[in-house]
Each structure stands twice: as C-alpha cells, then as structure tokens.
Design a protein around this nucleic acid. Structure first.
Lengths: 138, 138
DNA sequence: CTAAAATTTTAGCGATTGCTACAATTCTGT
DNA sequence: ACAGAATTGTAGCAATCGCTAAAATTTTAG
C-alpha cells in the first residue's frame, strides 16, 4: 500500500480539469442535438443541462475561443472539425461505459446516469477492458 | 431549491457538485494521512493534491464551516465526527471501485488512478454490483 | 406590416478553486 | 534563548460556472 505521503501517481489524474469536462459535455450535447434537429441553439443546451441560458452563452463563448464550435451573434451553434472529432470520441467512450454497465447487470436508467459521470474518468486502458467485457469488440 | 426543469434523468447527476467532491477528497485525504502520521498539516494536503498551501488553507476553512473538520490558527487539522463518517464512507466506496477494477483485470496503478476519478460518480446501485463482482460481499 | 413572443446578449453579482507575494507564527538547531 | 527554517495566514489577482435583471435581436402571430 502506498505511503500516506505518496502524492503524484493517483492524484495527477484526480486533479481533474473541470473546464475540459464541461467542454466534452457540451460538444457531445451539440452533436447529439444536431443529430435530431436542424439547429442547435443556446436554449436547447440550457434545457439539457438545466442551467440558465446565460451560463450556456458564456461557455459557448469559451468553447468558440478554444476552436471547438462556431457561432455568430443570435445565430445557432455549429461544431468545428475539432469539435466534431472530440464529440465523436466522447460519444464512443460514453457508449462503451454505458454498455459496460448494462453488461454487468445495471438497469438502463442507472447505467445512463452513471455513465454520464464516469465517462470523463476512464483511462484508455480501462476503456479497452470495458469494451471487451461489454462484448463490443469488432 | 429544485428548478423544475425536469430534464433528462441522466443530467441531474452529471450536473455534479464539484464542491462536494472536493470535500470528499479532502476528508478522505485527512483520514488517510492521520492513519500514517500523528498530525495532518496544511502542507501534507498541499503536497498530496499538488496545489499551493494557500488553496488548501481556503478549502480547509470552508470545510470547517461545513462542520467536516476542525483546526485552529497554526494548528494541525482534525476531523469532526461528521467528517470521520464521510471519510469512512468515501474510503469504502473508493476501495470497492478500486478492487472492482482489479477484479476485471485492470493493473494496480491504473486501477488506483481511475478509482480516484470514478468514485464520486458511482450510484449506490452500481456500487453494490461492483462489490458483488469484486467478491467483497460479507 | 406590426406587435408580441422567443431568443440571445450584456452587465453585474457570488462561490469555488487556482496562483504569487508577503506577513505572521511556530518549530528547530546551536 | 535566539536566529533561521518551516509552516501557516492574509491580500489580491484570475478563470470557471452559477444566477437575475434588463437590453437587443430575431422569430412568429395577427
């Protein structure tokens, strides 16, 4: 067992980047919304995340600066190539986690909820194992 | 309190409370440190989380207001009864997640890292299943 | 077309978590 | 005991994510 003062290894990862998680959640949401509607608006995201449209507005502004999405004043939101790639990656990871939870016997609703929280914290190695155990190997 | 947006079940959980996670991480760390040393100091926590002592100081101040721990100026940190209970709960949950990851074939180091991130996002139901599959049933 | 409704933006507040720089206190070695 | 080292506290900055209120713009309905 690690000594109490043994800092780095585990916690380098636990020092999570909340801003990155938000970015992932948002591009994933935008991609999901655009798969069902012609346009993604601030209001759609506000409803989805149950926050005010003002909060969404500011986050969208930040993500645009980071090159993940594009929008103009009073116009709908679109993903950049970079945003689409990130969204795709997140969606796949999200699905693997969700299907893994289903595979070990978690009910649909709980799996959906837990996958949302867990997805950002699964390393590539663990993700591969999840995929195997979920029977998603191609 | 609840802004009745009645949004998708999954996101009620994904709207995570970062402050609560920090509280859990800190009481868990304090308990762990006190299991190895006679006293827990601001510096110990700063090293563990790889943040400045100033950041730790402010968080400790907040947690004291919340009744999770106690400290006086220039004195070491101790957990309240409430803090000990929370720490115990978190440690158990943490161990279940870690052992579960080991049980499905994840290596020790990866399991330790991923458990740190995942622990805050596992529902009671999923946690029970993890414990079963880890062979930790009493 | 025009007025109302919906949507988006801006302004400004607070909480939380990060930092550096510096002051205050406690601990330690001689 | 006392000086220097270590530790802790304070002041003040920034970034992120919440909010309300109110202004600006676009969309919709009559």
């Amino acid at each position: 067992m690690a000594k109490a003062t043994n800092i780095s290894e585990p916690h380098r990862r636990t020092r999570r980047d909340h801003a990155s998680e938000t970015a992932e959640d948002y591009v994933e949401a935008v991609a999901d919304i655009l798969a069902w509607r012609p346009k993604c608006r601030v209001t759609d995201l506000a409803k989805r995340f149950a926050v005010s449209h003002v909060t969404v507005n500011r986050i969208v502004e930040r993500l645009q600066k980071e090159g993940l999405l594009v929008t103009r004043p009073y116009q709908p939101i679109e993903l950049t190539h970079k945003g689409k790639r990130l969204a795709s990656k997140c969606r796949e990871r999200h699905e693997i986690v969700r299907c893994f939870l289903l595979a070990i016997g978690i009910d649909e609703e709980t799996a959906a909820i837990d996958a949302e929280g867990i997805e950002h914290h699964v390393s590539p190695r663990t993700l591969r194992r999840f995929r195997e155990l979920a029977g998603m190997d191609s």
